[in-house]
Design a protein around this nucleic acid. Structure first.
Lengths: 178, 178
DNA sequence: CCGCACATGTAAGACGTTACATGATTGT
DNA sequence: ACAATCATGTAACGTCTTACATGTGCGG
């Protein structure tokens, strides 16, 4: 049985459970449902769709207007999805360039380092604020528990990161200006 | 001036600030200093070293025993490193397959989902425990502030993740067995 | 003297991103 | 008519991973 080769393909199959969609639709749906924490580009989508059509995980319907090609998940696709989803999830992948920077901060002027840290902190604070606003909207909507769960993950992450940022100057014995 | 093309190359240059090392040494040093949060494989190391030797960021010394080739950072390399380190860091890259899974949890049997969640939670708890042990050792060593800072990031992250895990069953309205 | 750790590298492929090319249809 | 959006895809490239190939020298 052909297996789902990667998380991206699996995500597409997951979305297709809701009904046939074109590649374009899938990009939009992914952006809406998982875009906040899982990027997925057009190129990838069309590549994975072509691959999955070849291995029989999806079928292509009749071309509609504007060359629109609806893809539908097959029983094989559902089985492959179930298999992927049932297996142990892959390891988390977390790369924070700032950690690399800090590791070598001995070779960076202190003021520049502070500026970078401040900039990064601001970006995270901004993201947290956005998440919290999204959350306020989501909690009032029924049937959005799953999106709320992922959003809460993001919120927890950003809060942890911000707390870490605040502990940084003391840890690295940097003088906070003013 | 040739620039550092990616974070991996920059990391190698950072390590080479401490003195000439062979590719093998660099793999080991990276594992030791940044391995916890930034993977770096042999293939990458040799590729980047060859590239950087070509662009003059490092020089190859005389081949020693066992074909050992010491690489040393050049002034050009130091300049390129400074440039990289001074620029705004790239975006964080975070991919948590479990979030994808939860998004599509409607197509997963509840008991299986619970088992996966429990398994992931255990993995994170284990990692946190390991970090905390490492921390206990590190805080007593002088001059390890930078590694401690990155370790604290990991600790904060794992704690946030664990808290999130504990909030999950209620959020998804899963019945906790027993 | 033999096995293991040291040490270098190539090959192949999956994955991801950015940019480009092409055309259809809808709305104004 | 014309611009914006819909819709499909290709091309090119960079990164990362896994596996493989090859040989050296130290320690028991």
């Amino acid at each position: 049985m052909p297996a789902v080769s990667n998380a991206t393909a699996a995500a597409l199959l997951g979305l297709l459970h809701d009904g046939p969609m074109s590649g374009w639709d899938l990009v939009a749906a992914a952006q809406q449902r998982i875009g906040e924490f899982w990027t997925l580009t057009q190129s990838q989508v069309y590549r994975e769709l072509a691959r999955m059509a070849q291995t029989g995980l999806v079928t292509v319907g009749a071309t509609g207007s504007r060359d629109r090609k609806p893809y539908a998940i097959t029983d094989l696709g559902r089985a492959a999805f179930t298999e992927w989803v049932t297996a142990d999830p892959a390891h988390d992948q977390i790369r924070v360039p700032l950690l690399l920077l800090i590791q070598f901060s001995g070779h960076i002027p202190a003021d520049r380092l502070l500026a970078i840290i401040a900039g990064e902190r601001a970006r995270h604070a901004e993201r947290l604020a956005r998440y919290l606003m999204d959350e306020a909207v989501l909690v009032q909507q029924p049937g959005e528990a799953r999106r709320l769960a992922t959003l809460r993950f993001g919120i927890g992450y950003e809060q942890a990161v911000l707390a870490w940022f605040d502990s940084l100057p003391a840890l690295l014995q940097l003088d906070i200006p003013q």
